[in-house]
């Protein structure tokens, strides 16, 4: 066995994760924020590992 198998498994896992999530929570491009946060005037609100819950 080579790394081709394990790397392919990693990519397949990624596709499966995104696919399963798309079926439950499809994105809505009409609610998308401006391309750049800087200069948008919108408060930053993404999840981050350093942030305590709001």
């Amino acid at each position: 066995m080579t790394r081709r198998l394990t790397a392919s498994l990693a990519l397949a896992g990624l596709v499966a994760l995104i696919g399963a999530d798309l079926m439950r929570s499809p994105p809505n491009p009409y609610h998308a924020p401006p391309v750049f946060a800087l200069g948008s005037g919108v408060t930053a609100a993404g999840g981050f590992c350093g942030a305590l819950p709001n």
Binding site: D21, A32, A45
Partner: peptide
């Protein structure tokens, strides 16, 4: 259970930056 987390749990992973 915090509001921000609940919102992100309901949203697509394709809209989560990390």
């Amino acid at each position: 259970a915090a509001s921000g987390s609940v919102e992100r749990l309901r949203s697509s992973v394709l809209t989560d930056y990390t």
